[in-house]
């Protein structure tokens, strides 16, 4: 398609007309936008706060339009409001809105802007009004993309952070005795979790100078070949560091599953309960239990 200089000139002037209109009608449009859910539910301190936020977005849009970059999500004009937009989309996302729904809320801002632009250009010929409306529509579409982009990258970050926190919270490593650490596993062991379990247990072995590490699987609902493999890997890694692993909490049902699946836990020390595993480790450390004493005493 051939684009004449005349057309480019028209597009440019349409964009700058939109910019001027947005600046001129800044107050009125901001008052309308402040009632839209996107602003009203995010800036809850006062209505003025919401109005100010609207104005910031309008200023950004005007700057982008005046620069003739209505299609450019990377236009410098957006930089100032990027953080604010990210906060808005994150806030909406927290209430359970999907990125598409958030984008819908952004799109809903267009109508009041269109009204004011049409009113502003009342005296102009139809062709000019059409050109400006087209530019405004493009500009609002670009704003929607900018919000979508921040919403998505923000969401991904949030999910990653939460996933990491959840993993860390779910795997506390406990020191049971001098030289003995234990990690009670609760819930399903997927690859990501077992990786965190392995790392925190091995770190604890170094930090506590632990000769024995107990992996308690009482809280693990099922042991399939994948879980067994993760356990084997942890045991092997601990052994390479010079510590011995004991797997405890092997309930009868799980023992049966392991046998039925033909899983090979070759060489791994297993015990029925955490207490049994602790006794095993204490014996290994040379800690004895006197028949009459209340607690354990070192030999």
């Amino acid at each position: 398609m051939r684009v004449s200089e005349q057309q480019i000139g028209d597009e440019w002037s349409s964009a700058s007309q939109v910019g001027q209109a947005l600046r001129h009608r800044r107050e009125q449009i901001a008052q309308r936008w402040a009632d839209a859910p996107l602003f009203r539910t995010v800036f809850t301190v006062s209505r003025d706060e919401a109005v100010e936020a609207c104005k910031a977005v309008l200023d950004a849009l005007a700057e982008v339009a005046e620069a003739g970059r209505v299609e450019d999500v990377d236009a410098p004009g957006f930089f100032v409001v990027r953080e604010q937009l990210a906060r808005m989309s994150a806030s909406r996302a927290r209430t359970g809105l999907s990125p598409a729904q958030i984008a819908g809320e952004v799109a809903a801002l267009r109508s009041s802007a269109v009204e004011h632009l049409t009113a502003e250009l009342e005296q102009e010929p139809t062709a000019v009004v059409h050109g400006a409306l087209l530019a405004l529509t493009t500009l609002m579409g670009t704003l929607r993309l900018v919000v979508m982009e921040t919403a998505l990258s923000d969401g991904a970050e949030l999910i990653n952070r939460q996933r990491q926190q959840l993993l860390e919270v779910a795997t506390p490593v406990i020191k049971l005795w001098d030289g003995i650490v234990a990690v009670p596993l609760i819930g399903t062991l997927d690859s990501a979790r077992s990786q965190v379990v392995m790392e925190s247990l091995l770190e604890a072995i170094v930090a506590q100078q632990a000769k024995y590490a107990i992996l308690d699987i009482t809280g693990v609902p099922t042991v399939d070949s994948l879980v067994a493999q993760h356990l084997m890997k942890t045991v092997a890694a601990a052994r390479l560091m010079g510590a011995e692993c004991v797997v405890s909490g092997v309930r009868p049902a799980i023992a049966q599953t392991i046998v039925q699946l033909g899983l090979d836990l070759g060489g791994v020390v297993t015990r029925a309960t955490l207490a049994d595993a602790l006794a095993f480790a204490l014996r290994g450390l040379g800690v004895g239990f006197g028949p009459t004493s209340q607690g354990a005493v070192a030999r």
């Binding site: 299609e71 999500v73 990377d74 993309l145 982009e149 998505l152 990258s153």
Partner: peptide, 8 residues
């Protein structure tokens, strides 16, 4: 339209 979000 640019799509910076998915560019490598």
């Amino acid at each position: 339209m640019t799509t910076t979000g998915t560019d490598t």
